[in-house]
């Protein structure tokens, strides 16, 4: 298992000009990068990040889109895997942070937490590349090559749970912009470059 912050710090130098949807890694990623190309959406509706990433990747085919999804989100919308595989965006990197629990609700395990083969599911749905990592050292070795592999690329990372038990209303708000402002700013930036 690895810490999400360590994984994100390892990824950051390889990011290039990719759009990064920070997903469940958002509260760590915002300390690493907070530009208009960073997309901290919070949790608009659980299970939808993969679809959002797909849509963004299809809309911006000349730019890599990297999504830090979670296994809880993925389990809620497994049917998105064949849709992504069918559309086959070569610029989409679908990374899943697998902490085996619903961390934001107190750490209850996701169903069959230790036995689900997420890369196997992605591969079976049609992703050409689907791999899993449990050690940071292995990620360090593989990540540069993985990010230059044509997508859609799926990678699952075993990460330590960061369980929150504080009542939602008392939690520290880490996002600096509302989700609607994040989307608005991204659209403006992309339009300005076209």
């Amino acid at each position: 298992m690895m810490h999400t912050a360590d994984l994100l710090n390892l990824f950051a130098p390889h990011r290039g000009d990719a759009i990064v949807i920070s997903g469940r890694g958002g509260r760590h990623w915002i300390d690493i990068s907070d530009t208009v190309m960073d997309i901290p959406l919070g949790d608009p509706a659980m299970g939808g990040h993969a679809g959002f990433g797909l849509g963004l990747a299809l809309a911006q085919p000349n730019r890599r889109v990297v999504l830090f999804d979670s296994e809880g989100d993925l389990l809620m919308s497994l049917g998105q895997l064949p849709t992504i595989a069918e559309q086959a965006p070569a610029n989409f990197y679908h990374f899943v942070l697998d902490n085996e629990v619903y961390a934001t609700t107190g750490g209850q395990p996701v169903p069959n937490a230790k036995r689900v083969d997420y890369p196997g599911m992605a591969h079976a749905a049609g992703y050409p590349t689907a791999v899993g990592f449990s050690e940071l050292g292995d990620v360090a070795t593989a990540l540069p090559g993985l990010l230059h592999t044509p997508g859609p690329v799926f990678a699952a990372f075993k990460v330590l749970p960061e369980v929150e038990n504080t009542p939602i209303g008392q939690r520290v708000r880490w996002r600096k912009r509302g989700a609607e402002a994040v989307v608005r700013d991204l659209r403006a930036a992309l339009a300005g470059r076209s």
Partner: peptide, 26 residues
């Protein structure tokens, strides 16, 4: 026209949101 087929209707919402965020009109 690009067709994006989904397996459950709720998926269409987040996909459309991503397309819109990237400058498309879904």
């Amino acid at each position: 026209l690009r067709l994006v087929g989904v397996t459950r209707e709720g998926h269409a919402c987040s996909i459309a949101a991503g397309l819109y965020a990237g400058g498309r009109k879904p």
